[in-house]
Design a protein around this nucleic acid. Structure first.
Length: 258
DNA sequence: TTGCATGTTCCGGA
DNA sequence: GTCCGGAACATGCA
């Protein structure tokens, strides 16, 4: 699930259920805490209160006492509050026992993880360099960022150092709505192509965040991409797929000419 | 059994 | 230095 809209959903979920509560116990699988031992994570978090979580791109930064707990969800991560789901699950990799309930970090494939940032430590030491958050970026800035780059448009949109938060599915959705083939190189795009890309980025993020994930109100490529015989929701042409940057891109050969 | 999967990172080659 | 492709990480599903 986790691209920007889902992580924004996790931020709100954490606010609703866990913010302000005191951490009583911490349990974590060894490999899932990436820059500390589970013991040290426990020592840092135990007894502290969870502050207001912030999201930047696909990262969640959660103040806990004077430290910060950083969460990244990889491809299969999520948060679960015990009040919503009483049973633990075998893929729950970190458990925070709070007063009044338990918050669980769940991640089947373990491509995500949690990091501990010590007081005063820069978050970017953990996250690596990140561009501006895609949701708080205005269209003009996005056009400016993109037009300074040389490579393919899809790679640029997915590059977290350029813009933070967009992943494979979202970028396919954006390019489909903007009518731009995923293999196009930025220097050959016209200014109005970039303007349309910036506009649809804003639109796709707004709709999917408001819908709490991806809750389509109109035609979405996202809804159809998994079906092998899928047709373009706009023109009815059979959808096509290519590999770009090692990932599958779904696009409409009618609406997105090479 | 094989291929594929929403992310990131590292490596090698052009 | 830039850009791209491929592999790796761990696990489940069609």
């Amino acid at each position: 699930m986790p691209e920007l809209p889902e992580v924004e959903g996790f931020r709100r979920y954490l606010r609703r259920h866990a913010e302000g509560r005191r951490i009583e116990r911490v349990r974590a699988e060894p490999g899932i805490v990436r820059n500390a031992s589970p013991q040290r994570l426990g020592r840092a978090l135990r007894g502290a209160r969870i502050g207001p979580p912030q999201r930047h791109g696909k990262w969640l930064a959660c103040p806990v006492g004077d430290a910060t707990l950083l969460l990244h969800f990889g491809m299969t991560g999520s948060l679960v509050w015990s009040g919503q789901e009483p049973e633990r699950h075998r893929h729950d990799r970190m458990l925070l026992s709070l007063e009044g309930g338990e918050l669980r970090y769940r991640d089947m494939r373990k491509l995500g993880g949690v990091w501990l940032a010590r007081p005063g430590q820069e978050l970017e030491e953990v996250t690596g360099p990140l561009g501006p958050d895609a949701y708080r970026l205005d269209r003009g800035e996005l056009v400016k960022i993109l037009s300074g780059k040389r490579g393919g448009i899809k790679a640029a949109l997915m590059d977290q150092r350029a813009v933070a938060g967009l992943g494979n599915l979202l970028v396919d959705e954006i390019l489909w709505r903007a009518g731009v083939h995923p293999r196009r190189a930025i220097p050959e795009l016209r200014e109005d192509d970039l303007a349309r890309i910036a506009e649809t980025t804003e639109e796709v993020l707004r709709l999917s965040i408001e819908g709490g994930g991806v809750a389509p109100d109109g035609p979405w490529l996202l809804e159809r991409r998994d079906r092998r015989d899928a047709a373009c929701p706009r023109c009815g042409s059979p959808l096509d797929r290519v590999t770009v940057g090692g990932r599958t891109s779904v696009f409409c050969p009618g609406c997105q000419a090479p």
